[in-house]
């Protein structure tokens, strides 16, 4: 039997750690969850299911994730907000000892000034995870959102 890359509990912790960084707006810590040659994207279910590649956030390689983080932290102008990620239904779809394919549901609630908290996004993570120097990393993360449209703006990665 080939050695498993990680257990379901480890994957769950990995997801929670990544979400905690985003909830804390500690964006500088976000790129470390990815491999150098990763693909990270936030894509609508409409495009994903139809085989259309466009994604509002499409980062090919860690460098692009770093650029998005830099731009969001240093350059972009947006209303102050709090995000909370709720992740459930973490599942390992396959594990060949080198790479795990896993998925989970996500719900992201956004709170803005003068407004009731609202659903920013709801959808599924579709991931490929590997182990590098003992640490789990995303080789690929597709945040596939069910929302028909994005409300106003998508600032913080999903």
């Amino acid at each position: 039997m080939t050695k498993a890359t990680a257990s379901r509990a480890e994957i769950r912790d990995f997801y929670d750690d990544c979400a905690a960084v985003l909830d804390a707006e500690d964006l500088a810590a976000f790129p470390a969850f990815f491999t150098q040659d990763c693909l990270y994207r936030v894509i609508s279910r409409e495009n994903h299911d139809d085989g259309l590649d466009h994604a509002p956030i499409h980062c090919r390689g860690k460098a692009m994730i770093i650029d998005r983080v830099t731009s969001t932290r240093e350059v972009a102008l947006y209303q102050p907000r709090s995000l909370r990620h709720f992740i459930s239904g973490v599942r390992i779809l396959s594990d060949d000892g080198d790479e795990i394919r896993s998925s989970a549901n996500f719900l992201i609630i956004e709170s803005l000034v003068e407004q009731e908290p609202q659903i920013l996004m709801v959808g599924r993570y579709l991931d490929r995870i590997v182990r590098e120097e003992g640490e789990l990393r995303f080789r690929e993360r597709s945040c596939v959102y069910d929302n028909y449209h994005i409300r106003t703006t998508l600032v913080i990665p999903a």
Binding site: S44, L52, I150
Partner: peptide, 11 residues
């Protein structure tokens, strides 16, 4: 060639 859509609601 269609690359895809983004949809956005702006109030």
């Amino acid at each position: 060639r269609l690359v895809g859509y983004s949809r956005q609601m702006v109030k």
